[in-house]
């Protein structure tokens, strides 16, 4: 017999979908439950039913809940070896295109966007690249666009940048304020920040590279399949897909559409 929480969970997700069109129904349950338990505390609600009542009638509660349900803690150049592999193995292919499009779905607060923009600038490719940075959380997109990060995170970012094969110093790309680093706004002249849902929206452009790291881990298998099918449709022939270090297409119904390109870094190439 399921507990009350397990009964209320699908009801809440259905209500959110009907009212606001955000679709969390096929998110991985383990992380979703944790996040909702935190939301209950945050909104001081006794149960998911009580939270649902508020979500349906108070749009600002939905905005707050959205932050709870989509929060991701990312870092610049997370897994430096991934960026090194992009630089050494993928960039030579990207150079052959007269113009480039890159898609970063689930970009959250933008750490990965700036990492890729810096890498592409150092390879002389940024000027002919358009980066689509998409997310469902408008607040995260605003932060991503602002490109301002706490100064106490920068030491780790710098270290990762060097390990990732950075050609200069990370400090060349930001201005340090009192407690924050503001990233060079010319980095985002090539970036289009935009609302897009891997759960409900469709393909909007043809791209040469999709970098979607540690986003699919929040989806169940069926939603992962949907997202990867979107990537397949968005990618040009022989285009590249980069996943997180612990993500794999092994269990995906799209596995046959891709070849492993740099196996240990989870970089795939569309067949």
């Amino acid at each position: 017999m399921p507990g009350e929480f397990d009964i209320e969970l699908p009801l809440l997700l259905e209500a959110i979908h009907l009212k606001y069109s955000y679709d969390f129904r096929r998110y991985a349950t383990s992380s979703l439950k944790r996040r909702l338990e935190q939301a209950l505390q945050n909104f001081d609600c006794r149960s998911l039913s009580a939270l649902q009542e508020r979500v349906l009638r108070e749009p600002e509660v939905m905005r707050g809940l959205l932050a709870h349900l989509t929060v991701q803690v990312s870092e610049m150049f997370r897994d430096p070896s991934f960026y090194r592999a992009l630089r050494d193995r993928v960039v030579p292919y990207l150079r052959t295109y007269p113009s480039l499009k890159v898609w970063i779905p689930g970009c959250a607060t933008g750490e990965e966007v700036y990492s890729l923009a810096i890498l592409l600038r150092e390879e002389g490719l940024l000027e002919r690249t358009l980066i689509y940075a998409t997310d469902i959380n408008p607040e995260a997109l605003r932060k991503a666009e602002a490109g301002i990060y706490d100064l106490d995170r920068i030491a780790d970012f710098s270290k990762a940048y060097c390990q990732a094969g950075g050609r200069a110093s990370l400090s060349d790309y930001y201005t340090a304020g009192y407690d924050a680093a503001v990233f060079d706004k010319t980095l985002r002249e090539s970036v289009l920040f935009s609302d897009h849902s891997l759960a409900t929206d469709s393909v909007f452009a043809e791209v040469q590279l999709v970098s979607c790291r540690n986003v699919l881990i929040y989806f169940d298998r069926s939603l992962q399949d949907r997202a990867v099918a979107l990537f397949r449709d968005a990618l040009c022939r022989k285009g590249f897909l980069g996943l997180g270090a612990k993500e794999t297409l092994t269990f995906s119904n799209q596995a046959a559409e891709f070849a492993e390109f740099v196996r240990e870094e989870r970089i795939y190439q569309k067949r």
Partner: peptide, 20 residues
């Protein structure tokens, strides 16, 4: 794996997160 939360989803199968 370091740097991720490790969780269990129905199945049982492993799930990961980069939550706080």
């Amino acid at each position: 794996p370091p740097g991720y939360h490790l969780l269990m989803d129905p199945g049982p199968s492993f799930a990961l997160s980069v939550d706080e």
